[in-house]
Design a protein around this nucleic acid. Structure first.
Lengths: 171, 171
DNA sequence: CCCATATAGTTAGCCACCTAATTACTGAGG
DNA sequence: CCTCAGTAATTAGGTGGCTAACTATATGGG
């Protein structure tokens, strides 16, 4: 069963009501933007899983494969964790799945007895190639509602919001 | 162990290289916007979990509590699933946790022998009240890098991207 | 040379999301 | 009536995140 269609977007009125209800003086517009962003982000994440599942992948597995290909050679699980922004434990899990599917191989490191080297298999490279056209096409569709200028602005705002994320996690 | 600091943001150059590598003619800027949005969305989701965990909640559990309070009375799990945009199975899991913590109670429905009615307990309402000031403050911090006008624009663009999400899931 | 500490990778266990299957009840047609 | 399709909620099992703890190897100081 799929998630229910689309939850009605939160309104400015709702935000105002909540803030007033607690006797606070927060800016309803700011709160609304934050809440909508989180909602859209969550929906996008789920849509992304649907998208990648067409190719027998998940978002995490795709990102790992793409990172490997972009890097152009073998990479250690630690390096992968760093460039994907996830923990090493998560990389272990992703690799387990990818190796089971034969998209990736784990080898021992030559220099470090503790280390491993992960490489794309031919099958893995082929998989990326097979999905490329449709993948990029759909990505373009995602932002097709924005003009070229708007996309430029959007990128800039996104960067500033990225910095603002620390407001949620600081202390 | 935390996820590694911050993966370097994908660049326009990277997008161009990938597209060229597959011999496609996609617009690198569009692809970049889509990829960055997904990356920021994912980071925001993780930050949100950190934020809510301060109050002994998760994003999902908070949204459920807030929805109940906003609704002003009891609500069935099905209604909750619809307004949160998740499956009923997910609601069952969230309720299990919330009920264990005493923030919510499940009662039998008067009209429908199959149905349940979920209500906020005093403890649940108090929890929301306790966290309100800090919560809204941090939400404001998230979008503090944007001017009032930019926030207005951002909301509009976000809506259009929300519509574009179907490009990922259609068919 | 050896031990202490640090690092690489994995494992185990938690949470939220999903799908699919199960159980219990409703309500409409024969 | 009574059966049978539909709906409410839960359960079971999978995945990807996380943290914490464990194993194995590296490395630097006495």
């Amino acid at each position: 069963m799929s998630p229910e269609p689309r939850p009605s977007a939160p309104s400015l009125e709702q935000a105002r009501r909540q803030i007033r209800g607690y006797g606070l003086d927060a800016d309803p517009q700011s709160v609304l933007v934050a809440v909508r962003l989180m909602a859209v982000g969550a929906r996008l994440g789920q849509a992304s899983e649907v998208h990648f599942s067409r190719f027998g992948l998940s978002t995490g597995r795709y990102r790992l494969l793409a990172d490997l290909e972009d890097h152009g050679g073998g990479k250690s699980p630690s390096q992968l964790a760093a460039s994907l922004g996830v923990t090493r434990a998560t990389v272990t899990g992703l690799l387990d799945g990818l190796e089971r599917e034969g998209l990736v191989v784990r080898g021992a490191s030559a220099e470090d007895g503790r280390g491993a080297v992960v490489s794309l298999t031919d099958r893995g490279a082929q998989r990326l190639k097979d999905m490329a056209a449709e993948h990029f096409d759909r990505l373009q569709g995602l932002v097709a509602g924005l003009s070229v200028d708007e996309r430029e602005q959007f990128l800039s705002m996104l960067d500033r919001i990225d910095e603002g994320i620390s407001a949620l996690t600081s202390d």
